[in-house]
Design a binder for these strands. Structure first.
Length: 454
RNA sequence: UCCUGAGUAGCUCAGCGGUAGAGCGGGUGGCUGUUAACCACUAGGUCGUAGGUUCGAACCCUACCUCAGGAGCCA
């Protein structure tokens, strides 16, 4: 039996005879002649009010309809005399599909995100997490639309890899050898050391140098012992890679990508946005609208350093050309100076991995980071070094073996082309889009140091 | 990993040296087209764990655990 979801019923313009609706009870209120059940099936934020008369044969069940129970209701969708909803279901019959009891912990009142994290199996039933995960799904779809509409091909890069996207971070080892085994890597399952991928970029470049424009969108893994609200050991990343793109075009695509997603957000998640704006972050909608309306700011790393020095602001970490921009610096740029997302480009060569394209000044590379207010970096990218001699120099300087990266150098040996790409942290984007301040609350089941529940 | 703060009822919190409290949630009863419904009664606690100080510790001290915020690393 397939029954209409609550979203479609609430969208109705007129009464409907004989509907069946199923969902979970959010709350029940008794009245003299009837009981009111607020039903939610996750199809949308709002619930459906069910009015069940005490004269019905099923009335004896009402006391057992506690918060969290699943029920099936048949009745008519009618105009509601109550002020808070246009339509409600006047029940002819109510069945309990699955009971709940007084130990069900979710209440109609608010819960802290910290508590909800401890019940990840129940939290999708809350307004907050339900909204987050509806948004997550729609944004994932919008990402595919954005790239597919521009003739990008979706490439499935490997999860298990033997190559290290140098500079991306610590890797999780994948092995079938018993714990503490003294066996050599050659005796392991793959005959060599293997890891969970930290990035699909290098393999993405392979496909960009064949299909021209590609993107990956999948899980990536970092074994960093990072304990912050912005880091997870398992997260999803979007990584486009484009042949015949320079840094300028790369930055343009990154900015267009963010704007496209925000547009889709406003079009498909209006109800959820209103909810976040009310209960999570009261400045959210204004900030997102502002981001959508105005062009992203761009500033070179060198100009950004000047700007920070001239700001007169006292920073905990000194600002000096050649040093990484610290969180406080990035925050100053995005939140105070530009008050909008800002793309910082042309970073010192010494700070960046081997594959980034050397600029003519000899001391910077064609790298870029997109910084957004409140989150910091959500996108990092670069034009890749397409000149074989310079790539080999860079690999040597980073102590990488020519043997392991021969396939990567081959892309430059045979029909090399300028190309570029970037990586966007999907959860980072979701935090920006929802105002939710902890990455653990935009991932269904978060994996962080010390935690891999469920 | 480092710094700071916090752990009291199922949940959110008050109490901060002298008999363990409220709201919500649960139970019982009442009222009512209700909508964070309302009113009354009721059950529910080794005050994170282990030590210590004190006549007496939820409260002060120490260690550990957990969580949060900030930092580093990054997406």
């Amino acid at each position: 039996m397939v029954t209409p979801n609550i979203r479609s019923l609430l969208a109705s313009k007129e009464p409907v005879q004989d509907v069946t609706v199923q969902g979970w009870v959010r709350t029940r209120r008794d009245s003299k002649a009837c009981t009111f059940i607020e039903l939610n099936d996750g199809s949308c934020l709002r619930g459906l009010q069910v009015v069940a008369d005490n004269a019905l044969a099923c009335a004896e069940l009402y006391p057992k309809i506690l918060t969290g129970a699943s029920v099936r209701v048949t009745g008519d969708l009618v105009a509601s005399p109550g002020g808070k909803q246009a339509f409600e279901v006047l029940a002819k019959n109510v069945e309990i599909v699955g009971e709940s009891d007084g130990t069900y912990v979710l209440q109609k009142k608010g819960h802290t995100p910290e508590f909800l994290r401890s019940i990840s199996h129940l939290r999708p039933r809350t307004n907050l997490l339900g909204s987050v995960f509806r948004v997550r799904s729609r944004m994932a779809f919008a990402i595919h639309k954005f790239f597919q509409e521009q003739d990008f091909f979706y490439v499935h890069t490997p999860i298990i890899t033997s190559s290290d996207c140098e500079g991306a971070g610590e890797m999780f080892r994948v092995t079938t050898l018993p714990q503490g085994s003294a066996a050599k890597p050659e005796e392991d399952f793959f005959g060599k050391p293997t890891f969970l991928t930290v990035s699909g970029q290098l393999q993405g470049e392979v496909f960009a140098c064949a299909l021209s424009k590609i993107y990956t969108f999948g899980p990536t893994f970092r074994a960093e012992n990072s304990n912050t609200a912005r880091h997870a050991a398992e997260f999803w990343m979007i990584e486009p890679e484009m042949a015949f793109y320079d840094l300028e075009a790369d930055m343009g695509l990154a900015e267009a990508n963010v704007k496209y997603l925000l547009k889709a957000l406003f079009e498909t998640c209006g109800e959820e946005l209103e909810f976040f704006n009310k209960f999570v972050d009261t400045g959210l909608i204004a900030r997102l609208q502002h981001t959508l309306d105005k062009p992203f700011q761009r500033v070179s790393y060198t100009d950004a350093v000047d700007l920070l020095i001239k700001s007169g602001r006292k920073f905990e970490y000194p600002v000096e050309w050649g040093q990484n921009l610290q969180s406080e610096h990035e925050r100053f740029l995005a939140e105070e100076h530009f008050q909008s997302p800002v793309t910082v480009f042309n970073y010192p060569r010494s700070l960046k991995p081997f594959y980034m394209r050397q600029n003519d000044d000899g001391r910077t590379v064609a790298a870029m980071d997109v910084l957004v207010p409140g989150i910091g970096e959500i996108i990092g990218g670069s034009q890749r070094e397409e000149r074989l001699d310079l790539l080999e120099q860079a690999m040597a300087a980073h102590g990488l073996s020519e043997e392991n990266y021969r396939w990567y150098a081959d892309l430059r040996r045979f029909g090399t082309v300028p190309h570029a790409g970037f990586g966007m942290g999907f959860e980072r984007f979701l935090m920006f889009a929802t105002g939710v301040s902890n990455i653990r609350d935009v991932i269904p089941f978060a994996r962080t140091p010390g935690h891999a529940e469920f």
